[in-house]
Design a protein around this nucleic acid. Sequence first.
DNA 1: CGGTATCCTGCGCGATACTG
DNA 2: CAGTATCGCGCAGGATACCG
Lengths: 154, 154
Amino acid sequence: MDAMNTESTETNAGRSPAAGPDGAPDDGLEDVVFDVFARGCPSRPTMEHVTGRWGGLVLVALADGDMRFNALRRRVDGISEKMLAQALHALERDGLVVREVKQAIPPNVEYRLTEFGSGVVERLSGLVEFVEANMAGVLAAQQRYDEAKAAAEA
Amino acid sequence: MDAMNTESTETNAGRSPAAGPDGAPDDGLEDVVFDVFARGCPSRPTMEHVTGRWGGLVLVALADGDMRFNALRRRVDGISEKMLAQALHALERDGLVVREVKQAIPPNVEYRLTEFGSGVVERLSGLVEFVEANMAGVLAAQQRYDEAKAAAEA
DNA sequence: CGGTATCCTGCGCGATACTG
DNA sequence: CAGTATCGCGCAGGATACCG
């Protein structure tokens, strides 16, 4: 993946298979390049859903198996109903999660990872575990940083 | 000065592993378990720095090699000076990045990944690439979702 | 160049209440 | 149980100006 700087003006998305100046074979599909570094690229919002404050936690929670709304709510400590619903909508829209309704009373709804969702979770949970495993070092670094900063003022 | 994180509150952070009321060797250090799912865990803010809107992009950008402030600003399309500074501070504090000042005129400052930072980036860029590679599918899913939703109203 | 200080706004998100 | 609707506060974060 490369840079693609549209410094000047408006939002440029993952660039369209822009027709070259000449007569190259223009199949015009498939070979679009997406780049998170570009301001207008559609991958930006999707990355935010995946890595955002709640989206990531919801996804990783679903790695343990399908879950119902309130189960998720309990598992992701601190999330509000509103934000959970919002996160699930975004993830469903992006094709990371499927919502499965079992007609019954009382209502029974389960959320499940798609194949793509599983791929994302696999990588995401690797990251989470790596960070968790190194938190002791992080805490130490923070303390050093704060002390240095405090010492700088006096 | 920015205050950044209003992380305070109580709630158990990383709780110790089981630590019964017994007389087990109580070193009370080192073997703490961190859990992102817990509301007060210190790993939450750190994960947000790593995966947040800008932090992740800054980290991945630094994977290409050390960079200076304005180079980063150009590479991470759309970021403001303020947010870049803020992101760099957080990452430096967490021990993911080091700030290296070369005394000179004009000033020369470089940012570099630590070893821990490199480990994080490795996993993070794997995620980014996976998502970018699947964006076509995401776009299709979004379109299906929107159409289904539009059809539901009438 | 490499930042910080300040002001201002939108919307993120939590709290609460209601529906099927 | 599984959500939607509404309100309102606060902070994320963009624009602008200024300093070493």
